[in-house]
Design a protein around this nucleic acid. Structure first.
Lengths: 201, 201, 201, 201
DNA sequence: GATGAATGAGGATTCATTCAT
DNA sequence: AATGAATGAATCCTCATTCAT
């Protein structure tokens, strides 16, 4: 019966995704989502703990899809270095889009961030595997020196997330619309280049 | 002593501007604004009729500044035609920014539009004068045939606003974040070109 | 289980009716009504859209009872003409009482009028049937010429409501308590007499 | 300068009287009264302690005028007994009108009653004198036995007020609109008749 | 005396959330 | 699993009242 439950859960997630991107997080009411999912709003609490949880799950689902697509999109690139940089910068771009898409205010963002961190653990394993493979590829192609793929992949992800996190924190004192992602992207690219250079012969 | 009142009013407007752009229109509470302005929220009603009015005044102030800057920015261009097109398209871009900046939902936008129209009358005089001057310039430089600056300026502004308004109306059926301004800009540019060509020898 | 909901709804209506007639429309708070119905004030919104809606429903309920009583009260009269006139003037008298009973200001009255109109449609069917029967009676008793009961009943009701409506409109410039219903009653009686005479041989 | 102040005070009272009878006590705002009196609403507090005080003063002024008129109106009656009964029942009628005129809710009424009592002391002296005179007349005309005018007048007024007060108290448990003054009038008339009969030979 | 400015209290309304069934 | 029903908290707004000038 878990399959059935999952179906319903997915239907709710889809309805919620539409509502959130249409109205933004704050303006979306559980009534809206319930209506869209053809379910009483009270029933949503059977599948999700609360509005925040539901939102985070929506974002997680989108993240899985987006990052999957990004991974495929990056494959045609020639060098492992380029694939890695493209993937990690594409990942940041995704983060920016989520904020805009759901009209998340900085306030909400900071309230929800810990929940995001929890949820990202779920995707992180997959991401680590992907990066690890790219790194191994790089070694095979003699692009990188011998390295420990898992630890290096973890380091890369941590660096990328650290830079992203710093950007959000810095936003604390500035206005939401003023957050400029260009310098963050630049910093990320620069740091990754340094790191990956360190792996080269 | 009206200066003092105006000072306070301005302080509130500034506080409100910060809040609106930080949290968006809906999420900004009068409590937020009152706190930021170091004033009881009830006192805000001494200076403004209601939340909507306050918001519109904020936008008006921003519009004055923005349009002033735009006018200066446009002056270095060589031909009057270019100045006019640049000004009127820059103006539309501003409109787009306001929506994003304050995370105005289409719903709110349509509710507030009449209030905006009222308020824009205040700036319109200044805009007409500016455009009129550009047109006169164009005549002096033999770029345009003889024309009535006031009436022509009015026509240009009306056309630009009409195209903007149509875009909002069309948005009625689409999601706020999906409104694509590129075709609107294109339509505006095209229409203006036609119009201004009509003024040429 | 809808019966249960209706029971609660009725309990609220009764509580509201008491409050409205005790304190008047404006002075009655939803807190008052909630207290009287032993329900959180927010719960009232589960049953009614807002204060105005609640008020209108109260009046509707009273109207049904009053008009029912009026119909019985009118039956003993000998001639159909008399019954009709008595019913329609009694109806106006009821309208006057509602205003006084709930201390409705002209301001509120004019704001609520459209809602009343909506709600009166619900009773109108019953009223039309009653009047139609009186008219048919009149024909049987050779008091009236042959006529179309439905259309004639409709005409009578429309005339009565029109005269009532005119009185409210005229009140626009006068104080609520100064509205004098005597001339309205007179006008109504006169007009009805003319109309009904037109139906006689 | 006290004359000037009194003028202003009277102007305010007149403005307030209009507002109160137009909108009712609750719906009248101090802003309304200030506007009508062409005075800042804060200035009203220079002349009156608060809204209640202002209202009570308005009623007092009206009472003086009304009771003065009533006294004249009663004079043409032949017998002192009739004059007294007419005066005291007319007085009760006035009381009823005040409630309706200003749409005083029972709630407000009971809150304001103590203030009324204070204020009525001001008129009471005049009323006692008037009644005393009627009583003396009655003695001169051999309608009554010898009596002490002051004490008897006081007794009459106390009885009349007591009956009125009882009516208000009884209203506590009933709805405002249901207060029926007819039995109160009757009771008053009956009691007065008994009393005055007691004074006759 | 008069008023501009400020505020606390209260009222209508919305919404996330809970709970019994 | 699903939902009808209920509620506390938060939000916009109005108004009587106060106070410094």
């Amino acid at each position: 019966m878990s399959a059935k439950k999952d179906d319903k859960r997915d239907a709710i997630l889809q309805a919620a995704a539409q509502c959130f991107s249409r109205f933004g997080y704050d303006k979306t009411t559980l009534q809206d989502i319930g209506d869209a999912a053809k379910l009483n709003k009270a029933s949503l609490y059977y599948y999700f703990r609360n509005k925040e949880d539901l939102f985070v799950q929506v974002v997680l689902l989108e993240a899985e899809r987006y990052l999957g697509a990004l991974q495929e999109q990056v494959q045609p690139l020639m060098r492992a270095t380029d694939k890695i940089v493209a993937y990690l910068t594409g990942r940041l771009e995704y983060y920016r889009q989520v904020l805009n898409l759901h009209q998340l205010s900085i306030e909400n963002l900071q309230r929800l961030e810990p929940m995001f961190d929890d949820v990202y653990q779920a995707v992180r394993g997959q991401e680590l595997a992907f990066l690890g493979e790219l790194l191994s590829e790089g070694v095979t192609d003699r692009e990188f020196l011998k390295l420990q793929p898992e630890r290096t992949a973890d380091a890369l992800l941590t660096v990328a997330d650290g830079i992203k996190h710093e950007a959000v924190q810095r936003a604390r004192t500035r206005f939401a619309h003023e957050v400029d992602y260009a310098p963050v992207q630049e910093k990320l690219t620069y740091t990754l280049t340094l790191l990956l250079n360190g792996l080269k012969k």
